[in-house]
Amino acid sequence: NQESVVAAVLIPINTALTVGMMTTRVVSPTGAPAEDIPRLISMQVNQVVPMGTTLMPDMVKGYAP
């Protein structure tokens, strides 16, 4: 099972992602793949992402898996 990126903390809208904001988990439906964490760092979210929420590609500005 592939791990997806999950918010480790509450991420406010327009916040640039840091490694400490993200964790990985096997979830369904799958979100952004765990191996993309290095690409996701410094990208901004376009909505509030509550802690424990799977990071879906459409939540991150300019990100395409």
Rank of each mutant, 00 (worst) to 15 (best):
N14Y: 13
V27G: 05
S42V: 07
M59W: 03
T30F: 13
K61Q: 11
K61D: 14
G62K: 03
T23Q: 08
Q44N: 04
P57M: 04
Q47F: 09
V27Y: 00
S4D: 02
N14V: 07
P33Q: 03
G52A: 03
L40N: 02
P65Y: 07
P50D: 08
V60F: 06
V26S: 10
E35Q: 13
Q44F: 10
T53G: 08
P50W: 09
A32D: 04
P57V: 08
G52E: 04
M21V: 04
M51T: 05
V45M: 05
D58C: 14
T30W: 12
G31Q: 01
E3I: 10
V48G: 02
M56C: 07
V26A: 11
I41P: 07
P12Y: 09
A16N: 11
D58L: 05
M43I: 07
M51K: 15
T54R: 00
A64D: 11
G62N: 12
D58A: 12
L17M: 05
L17T: 06
P12W: 09
V49Y: 05
S28E: 13
M43K: 14
P29D: 04
D36E: 06
N46L: 10
D36H: 06
A16W: 12
S28W: 13
L17F: 06
I37W: 04
P12K: 10
L17V: 06
M56I: 06
Q44V: 14
V19K: 14
R25K: 13
I11C: 05
P57E: 05
G52P: 02
V9I: 12
P33E: 00
V45G: 01
D36F: 05
A8P: 00
E3C: 12
V60Y: 00
I41H: 00
P33W: 07
S28K: 11
I13K: 15
P65W: 06
M51C: 11
G62A: 06
V49I: 15
T53K: 11
E35W: 14
E3W: 11
A16M: 13
V19E: 13
V9F: 00
V19F: 15
V9Y: 00
I41K: 00
D36T: 02
P50N: 08
S4T: 05
V6M: 02
L55Q: 02
V9S: 03
R39P: 04
